[in-house]
Simulated assay, not measured.
Amino acid sequence: MSPALAALEAAYARPCVPGGPAIGYVGADVPVELLTAAGFHAVRLTGDPGGDAAPGDRYLGRGVDPMARSILTRLLTGAFGELERVVVSHDCEASLRFFYALRELRRIEPGAGVPEAYLVDVLHLPHRTTARYNRRRIGEFAARLAAWSGRPLDLPAAIEAHDERRRLLAAVAELRRAVPARLTGAQFLAAANADLPLPEHVARLRELLAQSDRLPSWRGRRVFLSGSDHDTPHVYETIEADGHVIVGEDHSFGDPQAERRVGRGDLDALTEHYHESGPTAHRATAAERARHAATAVRRCRAELLVAYARTGDDAPAWDFAAQRAALDVPAVLLDRQDYGRADLAALRKEET
C-alpha cells in the first residue's frame, strides 16, 4: 500500500482544518487560483447522500438537484466549520438556485449565520462577446478578493501552483488508465479531491507517483463514467464492487480537473481557461459531448460507457443517444438515480 495514497484517502474522507481563512465554493467554474492568490484556503463544498436534507429541501424545494440541497443543509448545520464566505459559479441551474437561496437567507434570516455569498458568472458560448463578459466578471471577482484579503493578489504564483497540481494529477490519471489499472476510480477521486492545503496536496501527489510501484493491479470491466457530478465516492464504490473499474469520467470532480493548464500568470489566461473548460452536460451540445466521450473512451481503453443521470439533474440523459452512436463500445444509461446511489439493473442486463 502506498502511504501517500492512504494519506490522500484520509484527507478525502475528513474535512480539512485550515490554518488560515477559508472560503467555501460550489460549482466547477469558480477560479480557485484567485482564492489561492488572495491567501484563502479554498474548500469545495460537498453533500452527504446519507444525511438528512430537510433544511435544504425547505429552501430549495425537492425539484432541485439533491446534491445542491444536501450541500445547503450541511452549510446551515455547520458541517463545514467557519467559512469566511461562499463563492458560487453559474455552472448549472442547481448552483444558481443555491446562490439565490444563500443570498435570500442572509437577507430574511440574518441570525441564521449564513456566510456572505458571491456569484462568479462564467459563460461558455463560443463568442468574443462572451469572452469579454467573462473577463469582466473574473476581473471583478479578483478585485473583490483583494478587498476581502486587504492585500494584492499573487496571481502568477497561484496559477503556477495550480498548474503543477494539474500536471501531477494528469500523471496520476495515467496510473488509472494503465492496463491493468493501478488505481480504482474511487482512489482517483480521493487523490484528486483530497481536502488539503495546496502545497501539501502537491507534495502528496508527488509522493504517490514516486510510490507507484507499491500500487496493486485492478482488473475488471473498464468503465468510462459520464454525466452527473459525483462529490462523494458512493456511486463509484457501488459500480466497482460489482466487478468494474472506473478508468475515466467527464464530470468536474474527476479527469477534467487535470486536462488543461492555464499557462500564463494573468487574468486573460485565467479567463480563457474557464471560458473553454470541458464539455460537461450542462454547458455543451450533445454533439460536443459525444465527440468528447468517443475520444476519452479510446484514451482510457474503456470497454463500456456508463451514463449516469441523477434525479433532479436531467441534462446528462439528453446526451446519451448521441454518445452511444459515437462509440464502438457498449453504452448503458442509469437514469433518474437517487443521490449517491446506483441501480445497476440496466448495467447487469447489458452484460447478459
Score class of each variant (00 low, 15 high):
Glu164His: 06
Glu164Asn: 10
Glu164Ile: 03
Glu164Ser: 09
Arg166His: 02
Arg166Pro: 02
Arg167Phe: 05
Leu168Trp: 01
Leu168Gln: 02
Leu169Ile: 01
Leu169Ser: 01
Ala170Trp: 11
Ala170Ser: 15
Ala171Lys: 15
Val172Cys: 08
Val172Ser: 14
Val172Tyr: 11
Val172Met: 04
Ala173Asp: 10
Glu174Trp: 07
Glu174Thr: 14
Leu175Thr: 04
Leu175Lys: 03
Leu175Tyr: 06
Leu175Asn: 09
Leu175Ala: 04
Arg176Ala: 13
Arg176Phe: 08
Arg177Cys: 11
Arg177Gly: 05
Arg177Pro: 07
Val179Arg: 14
Val179Thr: 13
Val179Asn: 10
Val179His: 09
Pro180Phe: 02
Arg182Cys: 01
Arg182Met: 00
Thr184Arg: 00
Thr184Met: 00
Thr184Leu: 00
Thr184Asn: 02
Thr184Ala: 02
Gly185Gln: 02
Ala186Lys: 00
Ala186Phe: 00
Gln187Cys: 00
Gln187Pro: 03
Phe188Asp: 03
Ala191Leu: 03
Ala192Arg: 02
Ala192Pro: 09
Asn193Cys: 15
Asn193Thr: 11
Ala194Pro: 14
Asp195Thr: 08
Leu196Cys: 15
Pro197Trp: 06
Pro197Cys: 12
Pro199Leu: 08
Pro199Ala: 10
Glu200Arg: 15
Glu200Gln: 14
Glu200Cys: 12
Glu200Phe: 05
His201Glu: 08
Val202Tyr: 11
Val202Met: 09
Ala203Phe: 06
Ala203Leu: 04
Leu205Ala: 10
Leu205Tyr: 10
Leu205His: 13
Arg206Val: 07
Arg206Asn: 10
Arg206Trp: 06
Glu207Leu: 07
Leu208Ser: 04
Ala210Gly: 14
Ala210Lys: 03
Gln211His: 05
Gln211Ala: 10
Gln211Val: 01
Gln211Met: 04
Ser212Arg: 04
Ser212Glu: 09
Asp213Lys: 05
Asp213Gly: 05
Asp213Leu: 01
Asp213His: 05
Asp213Trp: 05
Leu215Gln: 02
Leu215Glu: 02
Ser217Cys: 09
Ser217Tyr: 13
Trp218Ala: 05
Trp218Gly: 07
Arg219Cys: 10
Gly220Ser: 07
Gly220Glu: 13
Arg221Asp: 13
Arg221Ala: 13
Val223Ala: 09
Val223Gly: 12
Val223Glu: 11
Val223Leu: 11
Phe224Ala: 15
Phe224Cys: 11
Phe224Arg: 08
Ser226Glu: 15
Ser226Trp: 14
Gly227His: 12
Ser228Val: 05
Ser228His: 08
Ser228Pro: 09
Asp229Met: 11
Asp229Arg: 07
His230Glu: 15
Asp231Glu: 03
Thr232Lys: 01
Pro233Ala: 06
Pro233Cys: 03
